[in-house]
Amino acid sequence: MHPIIGYLIAAALFGIGFYGVLVRRNILLILMAVELMLGAINLILVTTDASVKATTGQVFVLFLTVIAAAEIGVGLAIVLRLFREQSTISIDTVDVTTGTMPDLDAEPPRSDT
C-alpha cells in the first residue's frame, strides 16, 4: 500500500471543497463544501494511521466528526434564523449588520394563554 495515493486524494478533495467555498453563493452549498474539506482532513489522518499502524489518527477522526456535527447543527440554526429575518441565504445579499438578537429574558410563548 502506497500512502501517497491516499494523501493525493485528500489534497484533491480539499482543493475541490475550497473551490466550492469560494464559488458558491448559497450558504447551504458552502456548508456542503466545508464538509468536503473536513473529509479531506479525515482521509489524511486515516492514511497516516495506516502507514504508521496506529489508532491515534482514527480517534481524532472521531473527534472531528463530533465537531463537524456540532458545526453543522449551529450553522443550520444560523441559516434558518437568517432566512427568517432577511428572506435570503445568499452571501452576496445578506446583511449581517442589522437584525435582532434573541430575547433571552422573554417568557417563552405558552400554549395555554
Partner: peptide, 27 residues
Amino acid sequence: GVLVALGAIAGLSTLLVQAFGWSKVNQ
C-alpha cells in the same frame, strides 16, 4: 475560484509528494 483551488491542490500535492514520495507500507 478555479485558479485558487488548482493552486491549493498543486501546493498540497507537491508538499505531500516531497514528504512521502513513493514509500510503501505493508498492512
